[in-house]
């Protein structure tokens, strides 16, 4: 509500820029938001099933981005790809998703599974440790330099003009990111809703003990959840690299933080909530950067998060936590 008033106010009183500018920001925000939403899904799925804030998730996405970059470089780089561009992009996504998926599996197996019955604080600290380990390993192995995907060189600088040449502009790459994210999300919803695994996952997240008694192996379900969530993160990492071009070892920290914000705002543990939250955080960030000074955008995003937490701790689409004794 407040958000709507602010947006209206900003648009209405912004003398020179008008609605085209607003729509342009919105489109950019949706692109950013779809990436955040993919990252948020990983946080939310893991929280839903383990009640664990997996701080390392942003860094898994970062590693996905690095794997994608590695594939791109191995196959000739953006200017002279060795295989057709479509195949190359597909290759990047598949390898990055598999790589980060298996990384997620490994993290779950070695950092979180031994702590299944430990006090709640233990896996959180372990998660901080994993995040730190991943970031600094990448720093150790690949250095602190920023790397450029040069995604526009690879695909195209062109795009679609909505409403004439002075209107809103969406690059083909942007369109690709939005469609890709949508497809992945639809796939995920289908997976959770209609497959045996999805059923098992929902059962485990509802009550792990009862699910175990019904013959579901919770460890397997949790591992699969980690795999799926991390693979989505890896895809988000590659998309991030393609659209925004630069990646470095801390890119996962900030993007992960925003994805995490998205998951929390939407209601952590809720899959539609993560999608909604991602979109919202992307839009708010884009609007804040557009209408306010760039250096307060992050403060606005964090401020909204803290506000949401204070007013509605369970998030927009989450269910309030019941305390069982």
């Amino acid at each position: 509500m407040l958000l709507a008033i602010w947006v209206f106010y900003a648009v209405y009183f912004s003398p020179t820029q008008g609605w085209t500018f607003f729509l342009q920001l919105t489109v950019d925000g949706i692109i950013l938001g779809s990436i955040y939403a993919l990252i948020a899904l990983g946080y939310s799925m893991v929280y839903g099933i383990l009640k664990l804030l997996n701080f390392a998730h942003g860094d898994v996405a970062m590693i996905g981005a690095f794997i994608g970059f590695g594939v791109l470089t191995l196959l000739g780089g953006p200017l002279s790809p060795a295989i057709p561009v479509v195949a190359l992009v597909a290759c990047m996504f598949v390898v990055a998703m598999l790589g980060s998926g298996f990384l997620g599996l490994a993290i779950e197996r070695f950092a979180y599974r031994p702590l299944r019955d430990a006090p709640r604080i233990a896996p959180l600290i372990s998660a901080l440790g994993v995040a730190f380990f991943l970031e600094n390993s990448v720093l150790l192995l690949f250095g602190a330099n920023y790397r450029n995907y040069d995604g526009y060189d690879l695909i195209s600088y062109n795009g679609i003009h909505l409403g004439g040449s002075a209107g809103v502009f969406v690059s083909y790459l942007g369109v690709m990111v939005i469609t890709g994210a949508l497809l992945l999300m639809v796939g995920l919803v289908a997976l959770v809703r209609w497959t045996r695994f999805g059923k098992a996952m929902r059962a485990v997240s509802f009550d792990r003990e009862a699910a175990a008694m019904m013959g579901i192996d919770p460890d397997r379900v949790i591992a699969t959840t980690f795999f799926v969530g991390s693979a989505l993160g890896g895809a988000a990492g590659v998309m991030f690299g393609l659209v925004y071009s630069q990646i470095y070892y801390l890119v996962g920290f900030l993007a992960g933080l925003k994805g995490f914000t998205a998951a929390v705002v939407g209601g952590i543990g809720s899959i539609p909530g993560a999608m909604l939250g991602g979109l919202l955080v992307g839009l708010v960030e884009s609007w804040a950067k557009g209408y306010l000074n760039g250096n307060v955008a992050d403060l606005v995003v964090f401020g909204i998060l803290i506000g949401v937490m204070l007013i509605r701790p369970q998030g927009l689409l989450g269910t309030p936590a019941l305390q069982k004794v």
């Binding site: 070695f110 950092a111 031994p114 702590l115 430990a118 233990a122 896996p123 600290i125 372990s126 901080l128 440790g129 994993v130 995040a131 730190f132 380990f133 991943l134 970031e135 600094n136 390993s137 720093l139 150790l140």
Partner: peptide, 13 residues
Amino acid sequence: YVLFGVLLIALMA
């Protein structure tokens, strides 16, 4: 920093 990350994980486990 890598070692501190490992330390946190290992100690927790």
